[in-house]
Computed example of a mutant assay.
Amino acid sequence: MIRCIHLTTGADGESHFTEGQIDLPAGERGDSISSVAGARSISFRETSGGGSFDWHDAPEHQLVLTLSGTLEFETRSGARFQLNPGDVLWAEDTAGGGHRWRLLGTDPWRRAYVILSPDARVPFVPTQGNTHAN
């Protein structure tokens, strides 16, 4: 299982998130393999331990793959979630109130940004009852 948080803009213009996972049906050689989601580009970034970023929207529809570091994200309603190494953030809150984040601990946040193609279909499966709108 690969944990995934889907961050969207709701009808109220604010960011909301849903916890879930990447769908990994059985594949070859005993591996579990997702379907392919089209991407336009990938880039890498590192933020030193203790870093933070105040209120902002996602610049584009993207996947953020956390390689190291533990973060706390918050929406304007006060709802919070953590990202840990190996987690995926599917950020689609490109308008509205946005979100903010801060690094927990002293480890740097190393991540990959995968900018999705306009027609990309992310194989996300929500965990029942884990949409956070408040």
Score class of each variant (00 low, 15 high):
Met1Leu: 10
Cys4Met: 14
Cys4Pro: 04
His6Gln: 12
His6Leu: 13
Leu7Ala: 07
Leu7His: 04
Leu7Thr: 03
Thr8Tyr: 07
Thr8Asp: 11
Thr9His: 07
Ala11Ile: 07
Asp12Ala: 12
Asp12Tyr: 09
Asp12Cys: 08
Gly13Ala: 08
Gly13Phe: 06
His16Ile: 03
Gln21Tyr: 11
Ile22Val: 14
Ile22Phe: 01
Leu24Thr: 04
Leu24Lys: 04
Ala26Ser: 12
Glu28Ile: 08
Glu28Ser: 13
Gly30Arg: 07
Gly30Trp: 09
Asp31His: 13
Asp31Ile: 04
Ile33Ala: 05
Ile33Ser: 05
Ser34Pro: 05
Ser34Phe: 04
Ser35Lys: 11
Val36Met: 06
Val36Ala: 07
Val36Ser: 07
Ala37Cys: 09
Gly38Ile: 05
Gly38His: 11
Gly38Val: 07
Ala39Gln: 12
Ser41His: 08
Ser41Pro: 06
Ile42Asp: 09
Ile42Pro: 01
Phe44Met: 15
Arg45Thr: 13
Arg45Leu: 13
Arg45Glu: 13
Thr47Gly: 01
Ser48Lys: 15
Ser48Gly: 14
Ser48Cys: 07
Gly50Ile: 08
Phe53Asp: 02
Asp54Leu: 11
His56Met: 10
Asp57Val: 14
Asp57Tyr: 03
Ala58Tyr: 05
Ala58Leu: 07
Pro59Asp: 09
Glu60Tyr: 07
Gln62Cys: 08
Val64Leu: 11
Thr66Val: 15
Thr66Cys: 12
Leu67Thr: 10
Ser68Glu: 11
Gly69Trp: 06
Thr70Val: 15
Thr70Phe: 03
Glu72Thr: 15
Phe73Asp: 05
Glu74Cys: 11
Thr75Pro: 04
Arg76Gly: 08
Ser77Asn: 07
Gly78Phe: 08
Gln82Met: 14
Leu83Gly: 04
Leu83Lys: 04
Pro85Trp: 12
Gly86Met: 11
Asp87Glu: 14
Val88Thr: 15
Leu89Lys: 09
Trp90Pro: 03
Ala91Val: 03
Asp93Glu: 09
Thr94Val: 15
Thr94Phe: 06
Ala95Val: 12
Ala95Trp: 04
Ala95Met: 07
Gly96Trp: 06
Gly97Tyr: 02
Gly97Asn: 10
Gly98Glu: 09
His99Lys: 07
Trp101Glu: 09
Arg102Asp: 02
Arg102Met: 08
Leu103Gln: 14
Leu103Phe: 08
Leu104Asn: 08
Gly105His: 08
Pro108Thr: 03
Arg111Ser: 15
Ala112Ile: 10
Tyr113Asn: 10
Val114Pro: 02
Ile115Trp: 00
Leu116Trp: 02
Ser117Gln: 10
Ser117Glu: 13
Pro118Ile: 03
Pro118Glu: 01
Asp119Val: 03
Ala120Val: 01
Ala120Glu: 00
Val122Trp: 01
Val122Ser: 01
Pro123Ile: 00
Pro123Phe: 01
Val125Arg: 11
Thr127Lys: 09
Gln128Glu: 14
Gln128Val: 00
Thr131Lys: 03
His132Asp: 00
Ala133Gly: 06
Asn134Met: 01
